[in-house]
Design a protein around this nucleic acid. Sequence first.
DNA 1: AATATAGTGTGTATTTTTTACACTATTAAA
DNA 2: TTTAATAGTGTAAAAAATACACACTATATT
Lengths: 220, 220
Amino acid sequence: MQTHFTIDCVIYSFNEGKLQVLLTERNEYPYKDWWALPGFFVDKSEEMEGAVKRILYEHTGLKDIFMEQLGAFAGVKRHPQGRILTVAFSTIVKYEDVKSKIKPTTSYMRQARWFPIDALPELAFDHNQIIQQSLQKLKYTINYSTAVYEFLPEKFTLTQLQQVYEAILGKELDKRNFRKKIANDGFLKELQEVQKGVSYRAARLYKFDKRKFQKHIGVA
Amino acid sequence: MQTHFTIDCVIYSFNEGKLQVLLTERNEYPYKDWWALPGFFVDKSEEMEGAVKRILYEHTGLKDIFMEQLGAFAGVKRHPQGRILTVAFSTIVKYEDVKSKIKPTTSYMRQARWFPIDALPELAFDHNQIIQQSLQKLKYTINYSTAVYEFLPEKFTLTQLQQVYEAILGKELDKRNFRKKIANDGFLKELQEVQKGVSYRAARLYKFDKRKFQKHIGVA
DNA sequence: AATATAGTGTGTATTTTTTACACTATTAAA
DNA sequence: TTTAATAGTGTAAAAAATACACACTATATT
């Protein structure tokens, strides 16, 4: 009648032109030595949102990050010790921002590491399936969410933005049409600033303007 | 560390030009005498999908119906007895098909009844919130799912189909444009048959062709 | 038999959105 | 100064979405 209840986190970033997922190496049975999504048990009387924050921090070292619910996975056979219901959440972080911060603070996990989404190992439990479902949702909502901007630094070039789109959708886009669409959406702010330190023509930098985005979407 | 775990069902139908939701009147504390979504506890070692089927049957009398997951709701305060995690599911049934079958077979609920979505009572727990979230998703996915056809009998008129769209979206649509869109989609089969027993020009009947729909969507 | 009723069924012009496609400009390094 | 690498830009064609009004037909009523 009662069940254990866990949270699992699908954490995305963008690096080296690829969509990456953060995985942890388990140091405990079951699935000791396997790679898995960062995740753990929720405490009694702990709000789910609070548990997500805590688990994210303990398993990856990351803090102050909003996570969105994907859904519940409750197969009786998904865990060898009998049914453990997990609620999967996902989020997106900026690779450079978190680079130095990623370090599990629990001994349940040995290490945390990024894997490109197209080269994931076989994961513990049903975690491969959770990631696939999450990716589907990301693709599906890309044009109606702020997701792509969460991968990028505050100031970014249009080419970087296009690369994020391409990494998520898994296909190439036409540069001119892409820029036309972005210009038409009209929620980027063009800065009076260009890239530095590149050995070719420097690209203009842009910022995402959340206020304009919300107007565009027709905020709830 | 362990929690109770329930399923709640958002069951839609279309009747009298309106989108309807099936609710049950509780016969047990807490929230005795309140209206609520059909729902109950999942047994230990019971697959979630099986529990959904069982609970749906016990609380509404309905059988053999596929339900889609909406998500987990786990607020510590959502249930007066402490956190009870619920996973919400939704489905759509044909009003006429189920009309005579709806009857709870458990004494936990006194009766089950349809309510128009725009005239719901205040519900037990966080059930109003669950319905709102579910409705959002229904609107959002209307054009990429078979949802609308699940409201209708096997053979239906274009006007009936349009009314279902209008009930879900909560706004009126232009008849000619609607028909153009449907014709263009091309996954309805036009029958050599018309409505019977109407006191005005009889409308042509159509069937939904799932195979053509899947081609159109680009089936996974 | 005439008529009222109620919903069916249809087309076109306009605007908007999407797609396809290729060259010049700028910068740093060699 | 040349080369290498990426930035930045426009137009035409096709497709999709929108706005809009009237004649048709089956039945019920008188």
